[in-house]
């Protein structure tokens, strides 16, 4: 009952925000919600699958570049967004096949995903020459890919309607709530329960007759697809993509969002992203270098002092002070 009330509140808040905020804040909040989708994709694979992936930024970038390439060539942004999701999910599935079916350990998996991200960064950086183009779309190296079409509503038999910032805000907000609801349904389904069992004890789950390999593969592909969706939306939001999305900085940000919000809660990923990005924006008048140092320090401090996440730690402290019993966790840890 309370869950339904919370969903209703979330929908109402998203619906009401454009009336309250300035246009600039709406545009900012749209990109924060896109980042929230990216954080959500990591929480699905890390918090519920127990698999730490440093490659979410790679899927985000691949989704964005696919959106750009297909969008520039076909002119249809619906097709472009679909291509972004499919491309990222496909890359995740390919990577998952080689690692999960090779039974590569969790830490090797993390390193391999990081390596793939870094190599994509370098490869995309060398594509400045005009001959690196897919159809009409020039990849553009470190200068980035420009003139990516804005997201538009398309209906058969009508001219496409390019979304204005408020409409884009509603589309992104709606997609975020939809993906949140779908991933929540996924982790509460029998598939999700088995996934939780694999996270807790893979060998025992396998001996009970469940094959962990394809379940991890499917979860990773879904997670990659969500990151690809975020990347496509990002490209449609900013009309621009560059290899910086594959950088260490960007990959670390995704992990920090989820760590601040707390793993294994889904909504925590969204909260963490909104909090961290708002703070970064607030403090961000200093140079990127200071932000990098601060980001690194935050990561070290959270791992050392609050390994289960900042928001859960604050929640726990509040509960201890007020003397209430903690609620039963969704999965016992």
């Amino acid at each position: 009952m309370t869950a339904w009330a919370l969903w209703a509140v979330a929908v109402v808040v998203v619906a009401a925000l454009p009336a309250v905020l300035s246009l600039f804040q709406i545009v900012q909040l749209t990109v924060f919600m896109i980042y929230s989708l990216l954080a959500l994709s990591l929480d699905l694979i890390w918090g519920f699958g127990g698999i730490l992936s440093f490659g979410q930024a790679a899927f985000f970038g691949v989704g964005g570049y696919f959106y750009g390439i297909v969008g520039i060539n076909s002119g249809s942004t619906t097709l472009a967004l679909t291509a972004g999701v499919a491309g990222a999910a496909g890359l995740a599935a390919l990577l998952g096949y080689f690692t999960f079916y090779g039974r590569v350990g969790a830490m090797y998996f993390a390193v391999i995903t990081l390596t793939v991200t870094l190599i994509l960064h370098q490869v995309m950086g060398t594509t400045a020459d005009p001959r690196y183009a897919v159809g009409q779309a020039r990849l553009g190296g470190y200068n980035g890919m420009t003139n990516i079409p804005s997201l538009a509503l398309e209906a058969p038999g009508r001219a496409p309607l390019t979304l204005d910032p408020v409409q884009l805000f509603y589309v992104v907000g709606g997609l975020l709530l939809l993906v949140l609801a779908l991933t929540r349904a996924l982790v509460r389904s029998s598939f999700g329960r088995v996934l939780g069992a694999i996270r807790e004890d893979e060998l025992r789950t396998e001996l009970l007759g469940y094959d962990p390999r394809w379940r991890k593969l499917v979860t990773f592909a879904i997670s990659g697809g969500i990151a690809g969706l975020a990347g496509g939306l990002f490209a449609g939001w900013g009309n621009f993509m560059n290899p910086q999305v594959f950088s260490m900085f960007q990959s670390a940000l995704v992990v920090i969002w989820v760590m601040v919000g707390g793993r294994g809660t889904l909504y925590g990923a969204v909260v963490g992203t909104l909090v961290v990005q708002s703070l970064t924006n607030y403090l961000g008048t200093a140079s990127v270098t200071y932000t990098t140092v601060a980001l690194g320090a935050v990561l070290v401090v959270i791992v050392l002092l609050f390994p289960r996440g900042l928001v859960p730690a604050i929640g726990g402290a509040v509960r201890r002070v007020s003397g209430r019993r903690p609620p039963a966790p969704e999965f016992a840890r």
Binding site: T289, Y290, V293, V303
Partner: peptide, 23 residues
């Protein structure tokens, strides 16, 4: 013994060192 936490902490360290040397 906390392998993934070590990775995360050293990753933060890596970002911090790059930032400090740049400064």
């Amino acid at each position: 013994g906390r392998i993934l936490d070590t990775m995360l902490a050293t990753w933060g360290l890596s970002l911090g060192l790059v930032g400090l040397v740049t400064l």
